[in-house]
Write a protein that binds this DNA or RNA. Sequence first.
DNA 1: ATCCCGAGGG
DNA 2: CCCTCTGGAT
Length: 212
Amino acid sequence: MKRAAIDPFFATLAAANPHPVSELEYTSVFELLVAVLLSAQATDVGVNKATRRLFPRANTPQRILALGLDALTESIRTIGLYRNKARHLMATCALLVERHGGQVPRERAALEALPGVGRKTANVVLNVAFGEPTMAVDTHVFRVANRTGLAPGRDPLQVEQGLLRRVPAAYLLHAHHWLILHGRYVCQARRPRCEACTVARWCDAGPPAMRD
DNA sequence: ATCCCGAGGG
DNA sequence: CCCTCTGGAT
């Protein structure tokens, strides 16, 4: 993708999604952290199904610790990788209580020190909960950035650096959600819906007939 | 590089 | 059947 195309690319996505909100359901920073931790290799629909069972039973670190590993595991059993996620979440809750007064920390290093929390999850929490201009690179962002030529890279970190360099500052705060929504509903993995795509004219993979 | 791992779509 | 889904730990 040409550099001059990047601004109109995001302006078009922004116009289509005036309020780019996560489709994950949460009512606190801690619930956001849990939802994102559970979202690894899972759909938002699947995450919401699990958190609708879990949060009424326990939606604070203390309550999850009190719930116990077995009950926690049972509560999220419908989601993929659920045993690892339950173990990680339990350990994360223990750390939050021991080191952070039961609060979700705002520092990247502290976030990434939590079991089950890697760079992508930390970037989401920093961006969505604390308003920092980070770029979380998940499967959608990775695919869209590569396919369109917006920010090509072999691994997520490389794509993240490319996006931080290339995405205009005005769009940086919401670029994460725009790229996810675009990837989920238009630029799908199996069969990208180029015929319905509003930014195909700037896309490296767009049909030649639709390109500038 | 490999493992984890259910649900939904094609 | 196969692939994909807002990855992280070993």
